[in-house]
Design a protein around this nucleic acid. Structure first.
Lengths: 225, 225
DNA sequence: AGATCTAGCGGACTGTGGTCCGCATAGAGC
DNA sequence: GCTCTATGCGGACCACAGTCCGCTAGATCT
């Protein structure tokens, strides 16, 4: 019996993510999801979404979700692994779009613009995302130390930024600088700056742009769109 | 009856921290700690320290500590508020020294050196601290989102760095840059870089120094020692 | 359609952090 | 030393995340 499925959700077009599992020469452990399972997943996501929008992500308990979705707790955890997994699943669609945007979308977020401008756009988009989904993101990240960093979403961002830095001609350790820059966009910090320090979103965007311009060389290759 | 004491521990010489409460014109709620309470606190800290060094901070449970210290759970929580509070208390002494060091200690960490050098030294010291206390620090920070940032230790670091940036002549938002720089020194991240990415401590120090030199102007006032 | 196999279900159960509140007692005042 | 009060104690209790495992029923094969 399979007691631990939970395909790592994370929706990365190019790193891990939800694998489409159809049309394969059906000779391997990947069969496809049973109909009732798919139905349950949808029901759960719906219920969770509603509860989150009603009470806020931080306040929603797994029991509540299970109960609202008329589903056993075991089912919940079978589908999403843990609380964070559920929250991540709720963010999944937006996450997909975002990644799609900076990988293949129009400039300046996507390819075509100079790396530095793409970086600025990247941060601005993320700040906007945090503005509306902040609590959910925080819920999805909050947990065992380092979890966030080990997850494929972080890896995707890190690679993307590192590549941009490379392209910009930055001479130092691009991976390290990527970590630092992403540190400025951690939802926990941004929410703190917005709510506790009373900084406006525009202010944060300006600061981010200034930071990027201070640190990243202006010139650099810009991959054609 | 007082049901929620727990003086915010954090040991900041100049921001909040453990207040010495003697010699006051005894007309106010601050009386001093009863002898048995003091004894218990010490016992608890001892027990906790031992358990942490034996099993690692992440694995130690509050029940274990209470049990090892021969004390009720209520007592534990009365003294330290919550798990993080206990961990912070264990870090307290080192924290005091560190803050003492960058406020009044010898250059380049303390006053006397140019702000940029002090910043480099600050980061290096913190990296060393994380090297030995990393897990404990992670335990102390891990929890409700934003907790870490709201705590007085963060405030102290933030102010210190912001002042150094100001002194260095940095023209932008010093508070924001302080947040970003501190982001590079978050224990969670550093442990990830050390363990998961396999970066050496020296490498991290070099990257930190490079980052600071990239971002912070070289010149600036240097307060005399 | 019936048989078979196993993914998936549910909910009782566990471990842990954190609260509550009646009781004991340290310590101040006499 | 005796009295009095509120500080501090203890451990039963609660909430919540996450596990376990016997059973149900969807899919597949014949």
């Amino acid at each position: 019996m399979d007691r631990s499925p939970v395909s790592e959700t994370g929706s990365i077009p190019f790193v891990g993510g939800n694998v489409v599992q159809r049309g394969l020469p059906m000779l391997e452990p990947i069969r496809h999801e049973r109909a009732d399972a798919a139905r349950n997943r949808a029901t759960i996501l719906h219920a969770a979404e509603r509860l989150v929008s009603e009470h806020g992500a931080q306040r929603v308990t797994m029991d509540q979700v299970a109960c609202a979705a008329r589903v056993g707790k075991g089912t919940l955890f079978r589908h999403f692994g843990d609380r964070r997994g559920l929250m991540r699943a709720l963010l999944d669609e937006g996450e997909r779009d975002f990644q799609e945007g900076f990988i293949r979308g129009p400039a300046p977020l996507g390819p075509g613009a100079p790396p530095r401008d793409r970086l600025v756009a990247f941060g601005e988009r993320l700040l906007e995302h945090i503005e509306v989904q902040g609590d959910l993101i925080a819920s999805a990240e909050n947990g065992a130390p380092g979890e966030r960093l080990r997850h494929s979403v972080y890896a995707a961002y890190r690679v993307h930024i590192a590549v941009l830095l490379q392209d910009s001609g930055y001479p130092g350790e691009v991976g390290y600088l990527a970590d630092v820059l992403l540190g400025a966009l951690v939802s926990e910090l941004v929410l703190f700056q917005r709510r506790e320090l009373g900084m406006s979103q525009e202010q944060l965007k300006r600061c981010w742009a200034e930071l990027v311009r201070t640190v990243v060389p202006a010139s650099g290759v810009s991959h054609p769109a």
